[in-house]
């Protein structure tokens, strides 16, 4: 019963913050809404018995990536130009109709699929130990490749953003 209540609260929060990201004119307020969305998502991961991923989501996404975003915005001194296309183009109705149709299409496809009936409450979550064993045995090669990728990103970021 609690799972349902928490799911509805967190999903409404998540969708509300996501709409806030897209509607705000000011990028910094958008970033704050995105952080709220990520924290709500972390709560949803906890609801799905994935505690490790919830913590990783907050540490990496909300705690590092979004801080990087806010840093860049503070360093760049954006005079937010009028988002002319978004606010003042006519007609406004077709874009909302198209997006509504897109959502309707996705939802119909999801509801029409006969997913095998799982019994959610008896489903075990995965402890950190199980995830770690899988990560270091079956997926050891992608794991090492990811560390190489991070090194490339580090070097690339420094090279691109350096002042000449």
């Amino acid at each position: 019963m609690w799972h349902n209540i928490i799911f509805w609260i967190l999903s409404i929060l998540c969708v509300g913050c996501a709409l806030g990201v897209v509607w705000q004119r000011n990028p910094v307020v958008s970033a704050v809404f995105l952080v709220g969305s990520f924290v709500a998502l972390a709560g949803l991961y906890l609801n799905l018995n994935a505690p490790f991923l919830a913590a990783i989501q907050i540490i990496i996404y909300a705690g590092a990536i979004m801080v990087l975003f806010v840093f860049v915005m503070m360093l760049l001194d954006l005079h937010h130009p009028l988002d002319l296309y978004f606010r003042f183009t006519k007609p406004k109705l077709p874009k909302y109709i198209v997006l509504g149709l897109f959502i309707w299409l996705l939802c119909t496809l999801i509801l029409a699929t006969a997913f095998p009936l799982a019994i959610p409450d008896k489903a075990q979550g995965f402890t950190v130990a199980q995830v770690a064993i899988l990560l270091f045995s079956k997926y050891a090669f992608p794991f090492e490749l990811t560390s190489l990728l991070l090194l490339i990103a580090l070097v690339g970021g420094v090279v691109l953003a350096k002042k000449k």
């Binding site: 924290v39 490790f52 913590a55 907050i58």
Partner: peptide, 25 residues
């Protein structure tokens, strides 16, 4: 008694940066 206790503390510790960034901005 969270079974990811240390990760939880590190996660919420890293959220404290926003207070400072947003206050300054």
């Amino acid at each position: 008694d969270i079974n990811i206790g240390i990760l939880y503390i590190v996660a919420f510790g890293s959220l404290g940066i926003y207070g400072i960034l947003l206050a300054g901005w």
